[in-house]
Design a protein around this nucleic acid. Structure first.
Length: 837
DNA sequence: GTCAACAGCGCG
DNA sequence: AAAGCGCGCTGTTGAC
C-alpha cells in the first residue's frame, strides 16, 4: 500500500474482471483521465448489500453514506459501492445514452459481488438497475432484479437542495435495514369492517362519542359528476378521548362488488351521515376532494384540518402526498394498493388501504398540530387557519359549481379556429414538394418535418437552436415564435407568415376549445380543480383534476382557468348564465404596490399615494412624452420594464423579452438606459435587493409580510448561477406571496359576507390577483360594494399585525361574459343602477 | 401503447 | 459567466 486513493480501494477482483481503462463508450470519458476512467466497485469482494450511485463516490462520500446506513441500523462492513456511470467527470451531465453505455459494467459488477439488497441512490442508479425513471414516483418501492431486491431512494445530494426530503430519505434507509434483516413483512393492522347492521350501529355509537376523526374515501374515478361515479369505501379513524388509548379505525364498504352494501351503499351512507357530520373535528388529507364527492352524494361534511395544506404551509418544498409524508414523519412502511382500478381489487385490500390512509392522516395531524404550536410557527398557523382552511371550503364549492360556458359561442369559435387552421394548412401544402423531403407525413407543428421544411426545403437560416443533446450534438433548430418573427423580418416568406399565424390557431384549437368542449357538462358548466398547494409562493394553480388513479393524459385532461387567452374570442365564451352577471375584480398593480411597501421605495409609495400610474410614469420616462400622449402600447412596454427590472432582469434578457413579447427592437444601449432609468427613478429598490440577498444568505429562507415562508437552500450552492437564481427568488417570493394572500384573504372575507347576507353570489375562481364572481343581477347592488370594500380594506393590521401603508385599488368589471365585461366606476359600484345607467 | 423529457406557449 | 418570478397543457420524440 503506497497511497490511499479511492482507486486503491477498488475491489481488485471486480476490477480485474470488469474494468476497461481504455473505455470510450460514454461521453464522460472525454473529461476523465487515468484512474478516473471506468471506476469499478469498491468495498468487499462479495457483499450482501450494495449501494449504487450516479457517479463513483469519493472516499468521503462513501464514508458519509456509511454513516447514514449505520444510523439506520445497517452493518457497514458488508456494503459494496458502485456507480451507474463509471467515469469521474464532474462537469458533464450523463444522459440515458451514457447510462446505457455503462450498464454492462454495472451488470457484471452486480453479478460478481452478488448482493441480495441494492440501494439505488437517485434516478440514474434506479434507471440503470431496474429501468425505471422518475425517482420521486418510484422511491420506496421495492423492485426485484435477479436474486437481488432493489430499493430506490433519492440521492443524498437532493437533500442538500431540498432539506425537506431528508426525513423521507432516512425513512427509506430504515426500511432498507428492515429489508436486510428480513423483518419488512406485513404488520398486523387492525380495523373494524362495517359489514353488518350490527357493525353500523357500533360505528354510529363510536362516532357519537368522538371529538376528533380523520376520514378518507375511495372512489371509482376522479370525476364525481361522471354518470357511474360512486364512493367505493369510506374509512374513519377516531382519536380516543382518553389520550392513552389507541385510535379506533373503521372502514365502511360501499359501492364495491364485494361489499355487502353494494346495492344500498347510498342508504348506508345517508344513515351514517348525521353522526359523521356531527363529529366536531374532521381531518383529511386533501379533504377538498373527499368533501366534493361526499357533497355530490348528499353528505355536507366540513373540514377542520387538512394535513396536506398543513404540510405545505409548514414547508412549501416538501412532497405533499400522504404516503411520502407518513413515511418521512411517521416512519411507516410504504402501503399501496395493487391495481389502479379499485373495484377490481379485493374488498379486504381496499378497506385496509382506505383505513390506513385515515390512521396515518391522524398521525400526521398530531405532528403538524404540534409544529403549529411552536412559537416560531405562529405566523404560519395564522396563514393556515385564516387563509388555507377557509379557501379549502370555498374551493370545494367553486369546483362543484364550475364556470358557466356559452356553449353556442364556444362551438362557433371552435369551428372558426378549425377553419382557419385548415385554410392555413391548405395553403402551406402548396409549398411542399411531392416527395415531402422523404418524410412520411406532413406536420406543420414543430416537428422534424416542419424543421426540414423551413430550414432545408425553404433554405432559411437557423437563428437559434434548442438544448444540446445528451451526446453533446447541437440541439434542433428552434421554431419558437420570436425566432420565426425574426426570420420573417429578415427573410420574408409567405410560408413563414402562415406558420406563424398557424401557431395561434393550433393552440386555440387543441389546448383551449377542444378541451373546453370535452369538459363542459350538460348544465353548460366546466369544472376545474384548484390546487392550494401547487406553488412555492402560495399562489394557487389550476388545471387537471387531482387524482392518483388516472394517470393517462387522454383520460385526465383538465381546464386551466388561469391560462385562458386574454382575447375575447376565447375568454368571452366564459361568463354567467342568463339572469346573472360575471364580475371580475382585479387588484390593480398589486405586486408593484406591495413591492413598494416591502422595499420602502419612497418615490413609488408617493406615486401611489397621489394616485399616479407607475407604468405610465415609466412610459413617460422612456419616451419623453407627456402622460396624455403615452399610447397603450407604450404603457405595455413600460410594464415589462417595471416587472422585469423589479425582479432582477438583466439588460440582455430585456432585449429578448422586448422583442419576443412586445415585438420591439431594443438596442443594448437602450436596454441599459431603460434599466438605469428604472433604478434612478426608484433608487430604494436596489437596496431592497441587497437586503434580500443578505437575508437569504444568512437564513436560507425569506418570509412574506404575512408570514409565508420560502426556503431557499440553493443560496449555498457552489454554482454561481444557481446561487443567483435563489437570490432573485428571495426578491420575488415575498412580493408574490403577499399579493396572492391578499387576493385569497379577500375572497374568503367576501364569500363569508355573501353567506352572512344569505346571498347566492359566489366566486368562480381566482387568477392570482383577480377574483371572478357569478352574481344574480338582483344581488349586484349589494355584492359590488362588498367586493370592492373587502379587497381594498383588508384588516391586515388586526389579523396579521401588518400596517399596509400603500393604497390598494380593486378594479371591477361587470358583464355577461368574461372577455366582454365592462369596467365600472366607483360611483357605479356604490350606487348600482345597472350597466345601461 | 406508455412514459419521460423537452420545447413552446397560454396566464398572472 | 450570466442572471425576472410563479405556474399547466399540448405536441413531438425516443426509449421501452
Amino acid at each position: 500500500m503506497t497511497e490511499a486513493t479511492p482507486l486503491d480501494r477498488m475491489n481488485a477482483e471486480v476490477q480485474l474482471l470488469v474494468r476497461d481503462p481504455q473505455c470510450e463508450l460514454c461521453k464522460m470519458h472525454t473529461q476523465a483521465q487515468g484512474k478516473d476512467v471506468c471506476v469499478t466497485a469498491s468495498g468487499p469482494a462479495r457483499a450482501d448489500v450494495m449501494v449504487v450511485t450516479k457517479s463513483p463516490l469519493s472516499a468521503k462520500g462513501r464514508k458519509e453514506m456509511l454513516t447514514y446506513l449505520e444510523r439506520a441500523g445497517v452493518d457497514p462492513t458488508d456494503v459494496a459501492f458502485t456507480a451507474a456511470i463509471k467515469c469521474r467527470a464532474w462537469d458533464l451531465d450523463p444522459g440515458k445514452t451514457d447510462l446505457k453505455a455503462c450498464r454492462p459494467y454495472l451488470d457484471r459488477e452486480v453479478e460478481a459481488i452478488g448482493p441480495k439488497f441494492i440501494l439505488a441512490l437517485g434516478n440514474e442508479a434506479m434507471f440503470s438497475l431496474v429501468g425505471k425513471s422518475g425517482i420521486m414516483k418510484h422511491r420506496g418501492v421495492v423492485y426485484e432484479r435477479g436474486n437481488a431486491r432493489v430499493l430506490p431512494t433519492i440521492s443524498p445530494s437532493m437533500i442538500y437542495r431540498n432539506p425537506g426530503l431528508k426525513g423521507g430519505f432516512e425513512a427509506d434507509l430504515k426500511y432498507f435495514d428492515r429489508m436486510i434483516r428480513g423483518v419488512d413483512g406485513e404488520e398486523e393492522f387492525a380495523y373494524h369492517s362495517v359489514s353488518t347492521l350490527g357493525d353500523v350501529r357500533l360505528f354510529i355509537a363510536a362516532l357519537k362519542q368522538a371529538e376528533v376523526m380523520a376520514f378518507d374515501i375511495e372512489t371509482n374515478g376522479y370525476d364525481e359528476f361522471a354518470p357511474d361515479a360512486a364512493i367505493v369505501s369510506l374509512a374513519v379513524t377516531l382519536a380516543p378521548n382518553d389520550p392513552g388509548a389507541p385510535p379506533s379505525v373503521w372502514a365502511v364498504p360501499l359501492m364495491h362488488p364485494g361489499s355487502p352494501w353494494r346495492r344500498q351503499w347510498r342508504q348506508v351512507l345517508s344513515k351514517i351521515q348525521p353522526y359523521f357530520n356531527a363529529v366536531p373535528k374532521a381531518i383529511a388529507h386533501n379533504g377538498k376532494f373527499d368533501c366534493r364527492w361526499l357533497r355530490q352524494f348528499g353528505v355536507m361534511r366540513t373540514l377542520t384540518f387538512d394535513t396536506m395544506l398543513a404540510a405545505h404551509t409548514l414547508d412549501e418544498n416538501r412532497p405533499k402526498g400522504l404516503k411520502p409524508l407518513a413515511q418521512q414523519l411517521l416512519g411507516v412502511k410504504p402501503w399501496a394498493i395493487s391495481t389502479k382500478d379499485l373495484v377490481d381489487t379485493p374488498l379486504g385490500e381496499v378497506l385496509e388501504y382506505n383505513a390506513k390512509d385515515t390512521f396515518y392522516t391522524l398521525g400526521l395531524y398530531r405532528i403538524f398540530k404540534g409544529q403549529f404550536g411552536l412559537p416560531a410557527n405562529k405566523r404560519k398557523l395564522r396563514i393556515f387557519t385564516r387563509i388555507m382552511m377557509p379557501c379549502s371550503e370555498i374551493f370545494t364549492e367553486v369546483e362543484r359549481e364550475g364556470v358557466w360556458t356559452d356553449t353556442e359561442k364556444m362551438m362557433t369559435h371552435w369551428s372558426i379556429a378549425k377553419r382557419e387552421l385548415e385554410a392555413i394548412d391548405a395553403e402551406l401544402l402548396t409549398f411542399v414538394p411531392e416527395d415531402k423531403g422523404g418524410h412520411k407525413a406532413v406536420n406543420f407543428n414543430p416537428s422534424n418535418f416542419a424543421r426540414w421544411f423551413i430550414f432545408e426545403h425553404l433554405g432559411l437560416p437557423v437563428f437559434a437552436r434548442g438544448k444540446d443533446a445528451d451526446d453533446g450534438s447541437p440541439g434542433q433548430p428552434s421554431m419558437a415564435e420570436a425566432i420565426m418573427l425574426d426570420l420573417q423580418d429578415k427573410h420574408p416568406h409567405r410560408a413563414l407568415e402562415l406558420l406563424i399565424e398557424r401557431t395561434k390557431w393550433q393552440k386555440y384549437d387543441s389546448a383551449f376549445f377542444s378541451a373546453y368542449a370535452e369538459q363542459v357538462d350538460e348544465n353548460d358548466r366546466i369544472h376545474t380543480t384548484f390546487k392550494l398547494t401547487g406553488t412555492v409562493t402560495g399562489r394557487l394553480s389550476s388545471g387537471k383534476p387531482d387524482s392518483d388513479k388516472v394517470t393517462s393524459r387522454k383520460q385526465n385532461r383538465g381546464v386551466n382557468l388561469q391560462q385562458v387567452p386574454r382575447d375575447d374570442f376565447v375568454r368571452g365564451i366564459f361568463g354567467a348564465p342568463p339572469g346573472s352577471s360575471f364580475v371580475e375584480a382585479d387588484y390593480s398593480q398589486v405586486e408593484l404596490r406591495v413591492a413598494a411597501f416591502i422595499a420602502r421605495e419612497t418615490t413609488m409609495l408617493h406615486l401611489y399615494a397621489t394616485g399616479q400610474d407607475i407604468h405610465t410614469t415609466m412610459a413617460m420616462k422612456m419616451t419623453g412624452k407627456p402622460a396624455d400622449r403615452v399610447t397603450k402600447d407604450e404603457r405595455k412596454k413600460a410594464k415589462a420594464v417595471n416587472f422585469g427590472f423589479l425582479y432582477g432582469m438583466g439588460v440582455n434578457k430585456f432585449i429578448e423579452t422586448a422583442w419576443s413579447n412586445y415585438g420591439v427592437r431594443v438596442t443594448e444601449q437602450e436596454s441599459k438606459a431603460f434599466r438605469d432609468a428604472f433604478f434612478t427613478q426608484f433608487p430604494m429598490l436596489l437596496r431592497w435587493h441587497a437586503r434580500q440577498r443578505q437575508l437569504v444568505s444568512k437564513y436560507k429562507r425569506v418570509e412574506s409580510p404575512l408570514g409565508r415562508v420560502r426556503h431557499l437552500p440553493d443560496v449555498d450552492s457552489p454554482n454561481q448561477g444557481v446561487r443567483s437564481e435563489a437570490e432573485r427568488q428571495a426578491i420575488n417570493s415575498p412580493v408574490q406571496s403577499f399579493a396572492s394572500d391578499m387576493a385569497l384573504l379577500s375572497m374568503v372575507r367576501i364569500t363569508e359576507e355573501f353567506k352572512r347576507q344569505g346571498m347566492t353570489a359566489h366566486p368562480i375562481g381566482t387568477v392570482h390577483d383577480a377574483i371572478n364572481f357569478e352574481i344574480p343581477d338582483e344581488e349586484l347592488s349589494v355584492a359590488l360594494p362588498i367586493i370592492k370594500n373587502n379587497m381594498e380594506n383588508l384588516p391586515l393590521q388586526r389579523m396579521f399585525g401588518v400596517n399596509l401603508d400603500v393604497p390598494i385599488i380593486a378594479d371591477l368589471k361587470v358583464g355577461t361574459r368574461w372577455g366582454g365585461a365592462t369596467e365600472i366606476t366607483p360611483e357605479q359600484i356604490y350606487d348600482w343602477k345597472g350597466l345601461a345607467a
